[in-house]
Each structure stands twice: as C-alpha cells, then as structure tokens.
C-alpha cells in the first residue's frame, strides 16, 4: 500500500544527505513558483525523468500516483476559470441564462493554465523528494530543524506503527470482503464501521504488548533520536 516508502529506501539517491535533498527540494519549489512558464515546464520534464530513472519505477506506476489528485486539480482550475458575466465577449464557450452568461473567463484562462502548470511542477518536485528520501531521513531533518523532541518522537513511533496497522487493516478488509461484507452500500458502511472499531481495539492490544516490551527494554520516558 505504501509503495512510495519502498522506493524511498531502494532508490539510487537514498544515501544522499537529507540536507542536500531538502535543499534541492527548496530549489525545485522556487523553480515551480518563479514566473517563467518555460522554466517551470522544463523543470517538470527533467525532474519527472530523473525521478523515474533513480527509482526505476515504471512510468505507468508513476502516472498512477497522479490519478488521485487530478480530479482535485481539475475542479480547482474549473473554479478559477468558470465565471458569470453580463458581456458575452468576456467569455469562451458562453451559454446564457436570461441576461447573464456563464462560461470560461477569457482573462482567467491564462491564470488557470499558469496555476495548472505551477501545481504540476510543484507536485512533481515533491514526489521526487518523497520518492528519494527515506522517512528516517525526514525524521533527522525534523531533528535538525529543532522541532520539539516530543513531536519528533511521536512522529517516529507513528511511522513505525503505521505499518502494523496497515497490515491488520488489509487482513481484516480482505476477510470481510470475502464474506460479502462490502456488497452493498449499507453493508460497506457497516463493515467499515466494524473495521475501524477492530483497528481501534488493536490500539489497546498493541499498547498492552508494547508496555511489556518497554519495561523489558528499560524505557525511561524518552526515545533518543540521533
């Protein structure tokens, strides 16, 4: 499920210093936000190619990661360019309702396009960062940013525990599905409720077992992070 995490550990730049990578990410963001369209565009293409090369992810899988966010991007841009006007000449593809016209705003279309390209290049930059930086390096980055220890410790533990929960989540989900628990919308809601409740029980079960392990490892209230 968390395939990005796997690539982050196995890519060719995994060993690079996290500070360097954070610096490059910042640079990429600046490139994405600067005004020159051609520069955004060439950065987008270069970084995408680099990402695929260093992670050796298939292009198909790489494109798949965009599926989830494309509708949102599309809707947002639609929200930017769609408008109402009294004058037909302001609009592209205008249709009228009484005296007002609906359609795509001529002045906003370039803005929408610019935002689209900008968002795309920024996303590609962040994907590069996510795909090339193991999460343990992110933790050490947070440490260097001098964020509070409690926050970093909880982040680190959460990262470890997520994998435990995802595994049981998948197992429960499969078992429910194979017993027809997701066949209708009503059943889906009901089964999801049971799934969430069972996961919540695991919070308690895991906690009890971890308490014992912490005692055995002489835990004194602090998870040291180097």
């Amino acid at each position: 499920m968390l395939s990005i995490d796997k690539y982050a550990y196995s890519n060719r730049w995994a060993e690079w210093s996290p500070l360097t990578k954070a610096g490059i990410w910042l640079g990429l963001m600046i490139l994405a936000f600067q005004p020159l369209l051609w520069l955004k565009f060439s950065m987008l293409v270069c970084v995408a190619i680099i990402t695929v090369r260093i992670t050796q992810v298939s292009w198909r899988q790489y494109v798949k990661w965009f599926y989830a966010i494309l509708p949102f991007l599309f809707l947002s841009i639609l929200g930017i360019v769609f408008t109402v006007s009294q004058q037909k000449q302001d609009l592209l593809i205008a249709c009228h309702l009484g005296q007002t016209y609906f359609g795509l705003s001529k002045t906003m279309l370039p803005v929408g396009a610019k935002i689209g390209i900008q968002a795309f290049s920024a996303i590609i930059g962040t994907y590069w960062f996510a795909l090339s930086t193991p999460f343990t390096q992110i933790i050490s980055l947070l440490h260097r940013l001098h964020l509070p220890d409690n926050l970093i410790e909880i982040t680190m533990l959460m990262y470890r525990f997520i994998f435990i929960f995802i595994e049981s989540c998948e197992q429960i989900y499969h078992a429910q599905k194979l017993r027809f628990g997701y066949d209708t919308i009503g059943l889906t809601l009901h089964s999801s409720g049971i799934l969430a409740q069972m996961l919540f029980q695991q919070v308690i079960v895991n906690y009890r077992k971890m308490e014992l392990a912490l005692a055995a490892k002489l835990y004194d209230g602090e998870f040291r992070i180097s």
Binding site: N150, E153, I154, L157, M158, F161, I162, I164, F165, I166, C169, L199, F200, Q202, V203, N206, Y207, M210, E211, L214, Y219, F223
Partner: peptide, 15 residues
C-alpha cells in the same frame, strides 16, 4: 508510556 499511546492513536487516525 503516553507517547506510545498517542503514537498508536495517531497511526490509527492515519490508517
């Protein structure tokens, strides 16, 4: 052990 409990709950919310 509160940290562990909070992290477990956080992982639960994430999942």
């Amino acid at each position: 052990n509160a940290k562990v409990m909070l992290a477990l709950c956080g992982a639960f919310v994430f999942v």
